[in-house]
Nucleic acid binder design. Structure first.
Lengths: 329, 329
DNA sequence: CTGTTAGCGCCTTCAT
DNA sequence: ATGAAGGCGCTAACAG
């Protein structure tokens, strides 16, 4: 019960505030014996410096703000986890904000939370680039996750384009030529990256065809596009993420379609559960925890005045499981 | 960019600090015209009161601390999500701490984070009751999740006992008499509740047999006990949670055991993914987001001086899916 | 080496 | 209705 204030410790130990403060902060310039006495009194009183007061005078809170769009999404959860563990290891606290996919609030949340923290790590896939660019300088130091390189903040991101390529190559290798792409309903940074990669793949291989089917980002939206996918006559489908893939897999299976014999499905993200569907999902595993860990490392560097890398990129790993197989016929 | 301090606003508006403060806090005792002018200047300068300074003088931070044992666990994630959404709605921030299942740190984390927040919501299933009891008064106000009623803090919990009963009744109804229980390796509050319910069921029905198999709390530990489960000759198994159930389901399936024809499996928690395994998992759905929401409500009441309910209990819902079926033979 | 004196930025009596 | 002054609890010059 850190009820005790520095004043009481000082009085009890018969010294001045400054001395107590020095001792508590490990300032060597205090007589050893005196320091020991102070420490003892402090211990006896259960004294700990009030972090708020320290923050006010020191100008730092030992806390960072993390804003993410959706705590229900396993990928963001993993990012948060890696981040929070890493920050904790360095003695930092994490203030978490879930914007619940309401893009209009992201800037404000970032700004507001920034005031009570030392910096913000921003995961805002759908925030328009110009807004983001305008926001960043006002909340520095900031680190951005899963967006292209930024003017005013280091960036930690997965390379969605390359991962999509790997997925496509995998499918092409299996003989698939007509692909469906269930895109996230909303235009996100990573969605764009996916789309670009798809387009590039089509350009490179005229025999390849990709039908884009608008969808969402969760189970339900995956299930919802089942008909559209089937109607598309595609032999393989790239889902926006594993959640969508799982919803889709479940829905098409329910309609008697066999995966992968009649339809191959690939997910994206590599959430742990993707290994437990039936059949297990082929996917591109985004090292989300690493993203989080590295986002913290970048922030830590910023906070420590070290010069951080401006852009860090992770290549998702292609994980081939049983939801993909040779193209039918 | 809330760079502006109250002093600048005051100077710019030609008034005193106090006036600005009053205006910003909606204190009516300020001349309307003057107030308007101040507001305008404040807006122009992008002024916002420094939350840290306010916290220091006001003695409240508008932030609560949430400590949970494992951010990788979907149930805790859901709790956090419900909690954070509810708190945000009331204008509160959330400082999140993941103790990574290191029970020895839970007290300290709670104490430390309490100092920078207005209260702590504690999810510490394995913290010994006496330690918890000793801790609570020192971190008040506190709210405890998923533990028995506490002396010094309101409690929000799922009724594990009743849920286990429902699961057992379901299995008994299917003719199962020899059950395996894959217990979490560690003794947690909810683990005890499960065990008690199991024991009670055995007492009530001498024909019922329950073999306890020590396990963990995640996929891998579920897979790890596959042999033990098979060797136990049980016709149905209650997994500690859905994760364990999934790992187990996957492992026994790989050994050619058909679920539920040869072995019924039930999980616990009702994580979203449990619906997507093959076969989909019968489970007891803990309303985790509700737990979180209500934990916040309890904290909010505490913070507002309202008298909160001391103990709130949620009954998990039995969700019957295809992983359970009639006992073989 | 230790104590005294200023603030950090804001809110709040207390006067006026 | 407004301003001046004190203090929230602590750290950091600045003096001794």
């Amino acid at each position: 019960m850190p009820r005790a204030k520095i004043t009481e410790v000082a009085r009890e130990a018969g010294v001045s505030l400054s001395t107590v403060s020095r001792v508590m902060n490990g300032n060597q310039s205090v007589d050893a014996a005196l320091a020991e006495r102070v420490r003892e009194v402090a211990a006896r009183l259960g004294y700990t410096a009030n972090p708020l007061a320290r923050s006010l005078v020191l100008g730092r809170t030992q806390t960072i703000s993390v804003v993410i769009p959706d705590l229900a999404n396993p990928t963001f959860q993993a990012i948060l986890r890696g981040l929070s563990h890493a920050a904790a290891k360095d003695g930092y606290h994490v203030l978490i904000s879930d914007t619940e996919e309401r893009v209009e609030h992201e800037s404000e949340v970032a700004t507001t939370t920034r005031q009570r923290t030392d910096g913000v790590i921003l995961c805002a896939p759908r925030l328009p680039q110009d807004e983001l660019a305008a926001l960043l300088p006002t909340i520095a130091p900031a680190v951005v996750i899963n967006r292209g390189p930024q003017e005013n903040a280091p960036t930690v991101a997965a390379d969605y384009g390359t991962a999509i390529m790997a997925l496509i190559d995998h499918l092409r290798g299996l003989g698939h030529r007509r692909l469906a792409f269930v895109s996230g309903a909303v235009s996100s940074a990573s969605g764009e990256a996916r789309r670009r990669a798809l387009a590039a793949a089509c350009d490179a291989d005229p025999g390849l065809e990709v039908i884009e089917i608008p969808g969402g980002v969760d189970f339900d939206s995956g299930a919802a596009v089942a008909s559209a996918v089937i109607d598309s006559a595609a032999t393989a489908v790239l889902a926006f993420n594993d959640l969508v893939a799982m919803g889709l897999l479940s829905a098409v299976s329910a309609r008697g379609i066999r995966v992968p014999e009649q339809l191959s499905i690939v997910g994206f993200d590599g959430i742990p559960f993707a290994a437990y569907t039936s059949p297990p999902l082929t996917t591109a595993a985004v090292p989300a925890a690493d993203l989080g860990r590295n986002a913290w490392a970048a922030m830590h560097a910023l906070l420590s005045g070290a010069d951080p890398v401006a852009t860090e990129t992770f290549i998702p790993e292609l994980v081939v499981r049983e939801s993909t197989g040779p193209a039918p016929r």
